[in-house]
Design a protein around this nucleic acid. Structure first.
Lengths: 332, 332
DNA sequence: TTGTATGCGTTATCAC
DNA sequence: GTGATAACGCATACAA
């Protein structure tokens, strides 16, 4: 491994000149530039990024804290983030927590240690105090999931209204006994808002509340299947399922098919997120498009603003539109 | 942001002592330690990782180069890698290329620039020369996909034998016209070996060869559906499909169901990788378990050996066992 | 047990 | 247009 020193010696110039050549700074004569470039070539010199980082106090890396990525829902957000990041010469460090708080703390430490210039939280278990503290000291953006009371800005979707629309769709399709199924954390805003809409719509129509959640995520599918089984055992009259994700919907449908129920004739099912799963499954699943790629792009743009302090007063709440996508699983 | 200097001043000790406290080095009196810890606490001091990295010429980060991660197949490998990495105080940087060579080169540069201490290649488009050059200069390990002629070590599976077994299974289940479907890169070793077995088994049994590939990956499913449609139009006699992944199998089955074919009665289908998809789909898909988590663990252990030069002569070829998992899609 | 001094590799300021 | 040099924050060899 050669250093800038060795290049300077070989080219018979100072390290300053070599640095200028590397960074394409103005004020280097063509002759010198070529000498230096030849030396770089001969030594196969590669700048040591750590020297640069230390000197500049900037790594051009940002960290994305996410539960897991083995789900097109999250990976689309990340692709949006990466798109904007790469166009602005930033690298994206994907860090998966799998809900483990110690892993999460470990990654947060990377922000504190100047490993990265900023952080995007997709789904996290940080407390309100932690987020507020981090937000005052470091560039921080929340996307999809967020703490509404926190001071950190976020990009998300109106989960309440989307769920309201979905519920009205189920009811207008003839459902009278609609069950709500959620697996994974019950602290997240998306679930809370979906559930709130579920309750409100049922109350408005004077229909019974039939809901069950399971803190275990288990890729959504596994937990959902058993939750659906319990619900159906206790409430054989169920004729509609509101699932908080496409994967949960698939778990429910799998259980229904085991019980020889026809979908949508006997029971209708709706999911959320419009992932590839809702298209490849049989039947295709009614769902909600959240424009996750766009959300990723926007949140990265916001983070860049914070890092490079382009704007002083950054708006805190950003809500992007959604679209209800009706497919086979809930047709009349 | 405070520095070690400020902590030293406040605690009225030298920076060396502060450094000793931070790193839990021996030879610091209890009294001094407490003084320093109080100063650290008061200043909310967080060490700047870049200083440490530069000084130690080590980042304790490794890079995983992978096509994409929105697939349980890859994410299981990565979980294995992360497991071993974290137990050895290393961080894992997940870098997705989506088959884009410029992104790939960008990430490779991070290895050259001392950003990371080593690299694991899961699926890549690096040339033989590139891999060999990198392997001589940096710690490098290949997993799953590899260039057999390269000098870099790898952990993988006997794709030929696994495919041979699968083909024999299809034939013994009664299939006489078996089609081979692959989407994505056709340069990868897994496809080449699978295809070689496909040909060998058919030749041995004197059966016709019916294969089609599509370089476009498209999440496997989309491309596979159209490939299957073409194959079925041209060869209505097909009674078995060998798909090179579970997602491809799903695409095929989707096309078959559109055509009102019964599976497995009319046509049998087998996939590969034993991802969650092969279980959640209806029918459940016969597949091959590759022990991806284990492969991830082993390859990280190997990389650690190379980084910390524990062993001198590292074996180059490592082949882990597989298991054929028969499910509904190919039952007699 | 503690402090001093040096260097890791780079960039940037200031001379010339 | 180029060079000398200080500084970034930290760890460590050596001295005390």
């Amino acid at each position: 491994m050669s250093t800038i020193q060795q290049v300077a010696s070989l080219a018979k110039v100072s390290v300053a000149t070599v640095s200028r050549v590397i960074n394409n700074s103005a004020g280097v004569s063509e002759k010198t530039r070529q000498k230096v470039e030849q030396a770089i070539e001969r030594l196969k010199y590669q700048p040591n990024a750590m020297g640069t980082f230390l000197r500049k106090d900037k790594t051009n890396m940002i960290l994305v804290l996410v539960h897991s990525v083995d789900n097109p829902f999250f990976s689309m957000i990340i692709q949006g983030i990466e798109n904007i990041a790469h166009h602005n010469n930033y690298n994206v460090l994907i860090c998966t927590t799998y809900g483990d708080r110690s892993r999460e703390q470990h990654y947060v430490k990377m922000l504190r240690n100047h490993y990265v210039d900023g952080m995007i939280l997709i789904s996290n278990t940080l407390t309100l105090d932690e987020i507020n503290e981090l937000n005052t000291n470091y560039p921080l953006v929340q996307v999809i999931e967020y703490l509404p009371e926190s001071k950190a800005p976020y990009y998300s979707v109106d989960f309440y209204q989307a769920s309201y629309d979905l519920m009205e769709h189920l009811i207008s399709s003839g459902c009278k006994n609609i069950a709500y199924v959620h697996t994974g954390s019950t602290q997240i805003i998306s679930h809370l808002e979906k559930y709130r809409a579920y309750i409100d719509v049922l109350t408005k129509h004077n229909l019974p509340i039939l809901s069950k959640t399971n803190e275990e995520y288990n890729f959504g599918f596994i937990s959902a299947k058993s939750v659906a089984a319990l619900l159906l055992d206790e409430n054989p009259q169920i004729d509609g399922f509101f699932a908080t994700s496409d994967l949960i919907a698939i778990g429910i449908i799998d259980e229904l098919q085991t019980r020889k129920k026809r979908i949508p004739e006997d029971i209708k099912v709706v999911g959320f997120d419009n992932t590839i799963f809702s298209s490849i499954y049989n039947p295709a699943i009614t769902t909600v498009e959240l424009n996750t790629y766009e959300l990723g792009c926007k949140s990265m743009e916001l983070l860049l603003n914070k890092i490079e302090k382009l704007e002083k007063d950054i708006k805190k709440d950003h809500v992007l539109p959604y679209q209800i996508i009706v497919k086979d699983s809930s047709q009349k």
